[in-house]
Amino acid sequence: MRLFLGFVLAFVLGLAPGAAFAGWEATEWGMTPEQAQAAMPDLKPVKSGEKMDVGQVKSAGSVMLEGVKGKAELYYGPAGLELVGVKLPAQSCKAVGDAILRQRGKPLVVSDQVLFFLFIWHDEPRQTRIRQMFSPQAGICSVYFERLSTYRDGDLRRAAAKP
């Protein structure tokens, strides 16, 4: 009985979103640029990076994503780290998407946006939304890792609305 309870507890703890596991790679949502750079030494400070609604790029560096070298840009808002964008070579986009598909299963959202394809997965244990944008015509391949709480409800409504 004790062994069974141990397995149940380990399973429940593995499913529960926890701050120590919430984020991307070695980072956690809410980290400052200095904390993220300490967690991932290949990241370097960026003085005046691109701005988006969620924040501004204040860290960047080379990363490996599914065996493909890319450039990560980390966006920080008032509450710290909010989004990580990884730009990859367009010719590797299908292979990266296939690897994410093998790991995460069927995407929650699949959408042909005319100019690009959009795929969205939710990683509940890490409280992370994974969004891949792929445009073979424009040669664009980007994978975004975002704080899930920002997008969960909208994504679930969008997925439920699909026929």
Rank of each mutant, 00 (worst) to 15 (best):
Leu88Ile: 02
Pro33Ala: 11
Phe117Cys: 00
Gly30Leu: 06
Phe21Ile: 05
Met52Asn: 12
Ser48Ile: 08
Lys106Asp: 08
Ser92Val: 00
Leu101Gln: 15
Gly70Asn: 02
Glu82Leu: 03
Glu34Leu: 07
Glu34Ile: 01
Leu108Thr: 14
Phe119Asp: 13
Lys106Leu: 06
Ile120Ala: 05
Gly97Val: 02
Gly85Phe: 06
Leu83Pro: 11
Ser48Pro: 02
His122Cys: 09
Lys58Gln: 15
Leu88Ser: 00
Ala26Trp: 06
Val96Cys: 06
Arg102Glu: 13
Leu13Glu: 07
Leu74Ile: 05
Cys93Glu: 00
Asp112Tyr: 01
Gly49Gln: 10
Leu43Lys: 10
Lys71Met: 05
Trp121Glu: 00
Gly80Arg: 03
Gly23Trp: 04
Gly77Ile: 03
Leu43Gly: 05
Ile100Trp: 12
Ala99Ile: 06
Pro41His: 07
Leu15Tyr: 09
Val46Pro: 07
Gln37Glu: 12
Thr32Met: 08
Val114Arg: 13
Val57Pro: 10
Lys58Phe: 02
Ser111Phe: 07
Gln103His: 08
Trp24Gln: 07
Val84Thr: 13
Gly67Phe: 02
Glu73Met: 12
Ile120Phe: 01
Leu88Ala: 03
Val57Arg: 11
Ala36Val: 02
Glu73Ser: 15
Leu108Asn: 11
Ala26Glu: 12
Gly14Lys: 03
Lys94Tyr: 00
Val110Gly: 09
Lys51Trp: 06
Phe117Ile: 02
Arg102Phe: 01
Gln113Phe: 06
Ala79Leu: 10
Gln37Ile: 15
Leu81Gln: 01
Lys69Tyr: 03
Tyr76Thr: 05
Gln103Lys: 15
Gly85Gln: 13
Leu15Arg: 12
Glu124Thr: 12
Gly97Pro: 08
Leu65Lys: 11
Met31Ala: 04
Lys106Asn: 08
Ala36Asp: 03
Glu73Gln: 15
Gly85Cys: 06
Glu34Ser: 13
Gly77Glu: 05
Met31Lys: 09
Gly55Ser: 09
Gly55Arg: 11
Tyr76Val: 01
Val96Lys: 01
Asp123Trp: 05
Val114Ile: 11
Leu13Lys: 06
Leu43Asp: 03
Asp112Asn: 14
Met52His: 10
Tyr75Asn: 01
Gln56Trp: 01
Lys51Pro: 04
Gly97Ser: 14
Val84Trp: 04
His122Tyr: 03
Ser92Pro: 00
Pro89Leu: 06
Gly49Trp: 04
Pro78Ala: 13
Asp112Glu: 05
His122Gly: 04
Ala38Thr: 13
Val63Asn: 04
Met52Leu: 11
Ala95Lys: 13
